[in-house]
Design a protein around this nucleic acid. Sequence first.
RNA 1: CGGGGCGUAGCGCAGUCUGGUUAGCGCGCCUGGUUCGGGACCAGGAGGUCGGUGGUUCGAAUCCACUCGCCCCGACCA
Length: 572
Amino acid sequence: MNWSKALIPTLKEVPREAVNKSHILLLRGGFIRALTSGVYSYLPLGWRVLKKIMNIVREEMDRIGAQEVLLPALTPSSIWEETGRWDEFGGEMFRLKDRKGRDYALAPTHEEIMTELARKHIKSYRDLPQIWYQIQIKYRDEIRPRGAVLRARTFIMKDSYSFDIDEDGLEKSYALHYDAYTRIFERAWLKTTVVSASSGLMGGSESHEFMVLSDAGEDVIVKCPKCGYSANLEVANLIPSPVDFPSGELKKVHTPVGGSVREISEFLSVPEHLLMKSLLYMDENGSPFFVVIRGDYDVNEELLFKKFGNVRQAEPDEIKNLTGASAGYISPIGLDIPVYADRSLEKGKGLVSGANEDFYHYTGIDIERDLKIKEFVDIRTPHEGDLCPECRSKVEIKNAIELGHIFKLGTKYSKAMGATFTDANGKSKPIVMGSYGIGIERIMATAIELYNDENGIIWPDPIAPFDVLVIPLDIRDSKALEISRKMVNILEETHDVLFDDRDVGPGFKFKDADLIGIPVRVVVGPRGLKEGKVEVSRRDGSEKIMIEPDRVQEVVEKLWKNGKELRKKSGE
RNA sequence: CGGGGCGUAGCGCAGUCUGGUUAGCGCGCCUGGUUCGGGACCAGGAGGUCGGUGGUUCGAAUCCACUCGCCCCGACCA
């Protein structure tokens, strides 16, 4: 490929809208361009990277016996209504109507479409197991797209679906995917942490996410350095960090400051973990109840809803009517309202909370002595310092990018849609399913987040847009040009080669080369030519050698192989 | 949906508070010449509905109202 004729619109300056490393470098390197919020075009370099990634994915999926199909992105509402997800998806689903006024959705995922295929064609236990996959664009109207390609509204996903006769079969298909995913990410030089996760809208029993640690990630994961326990923070059942509770008398004190935890803690010189946050909620019937939690924790609404159903926080006037005080100065003490306590307050003593009178608090609260707790529950957002549920040592909490997610669906979709088969005894049974996704662009973006320096991207060899970049520093030097062309021809037999035949200065070419991050670079310049040599180097800086042009194939091959020895980055 | 920021040439920005010649600067682009191992130099040139609509005014990029778009944070803290 000749650079002079290529669409590689590199940018010298950082585009205004970009924040993440990957976003900046994808734009600056001419890999992608935004069309509108959360929707991107892939330019030649970006598309080359994505194709390399998809090829790795294909090879590994084919290796476990999966078969590739391509399903429609345009789907009728009726199929989503069969499982109830036409309503469940809500605003996240892009919807449209045809000219007859019928409803359609641009598929955000394909469980229903795959299950439809299965119910048509799988009739007997003899047809099972099956694994079908596709690589195609998904459409999700995300609440907030972010980080360019990290959370986009249109994005390429590899999704596969397994069909088995029973749980044992599902277990095997799940394990096959687990292994395939591990290999896929390793081949892209990304070291993943596998965590247990919540299955959310997909439903099903068990699920795992393949994560790469990165500050650019919007997921938070928990890792235990001691026993290896790991989970998405959403589902991690961590033990609250232990604290000392002093004992004391119940006393009412004047607190003429704002009612926030920080203000009260500062005013009374009491650590935040000795404050008891008292939150007043209204249940579905409009009856009030208190939730109390240690001051250094926040209530996790997802867990709250799971436990108490469709509840809401009390309005300011409701709080006033029920407690006689404003939010910030309330507590269940002395009130006849049911109280649930987060487990962080178990055996709590010497606590501070509102006295149900503005600008007054109680100190010395003893959970067992002064409160009637209906039940201890786990509804807090875990934080640093919490203990591992397996071995009770302190866990690490880190941001991560989710690259893959595998789900055991069970029979949720097959039952809802009537995808059944006849077993060996002639009985009709629902197919047992799994579903498995990989974000193709996320692999690209994550690789950049991990592999870059101040000058640009340093692509992992297997997913680089080109393997080798040949740069004649001055194309008006006809001898240099001729030598370069010859090398390009030879190298192209075994590698993807980009040839910088542009008539621009050497500095310009070097800067661009660093930016787009091609792993191996061959420079033909006067300095080397004096000795009859050219320079071959790796973008990662590990090697730089001068060689005769006719050895180029052999030397490039060697540097290319050396790349494979590089460590796989995990983002730590 | 709530909060914040930003829309001026292809890109990055100044000008807006305090209205007033022809709306600037750097990079990029075009022509000619010089230059070639880390984003060169000289000379000349093209390129703008100042996001949009309406209003105030003798006069609006600038003030007011509405609106569209993009980015960031949040959608917990009694």
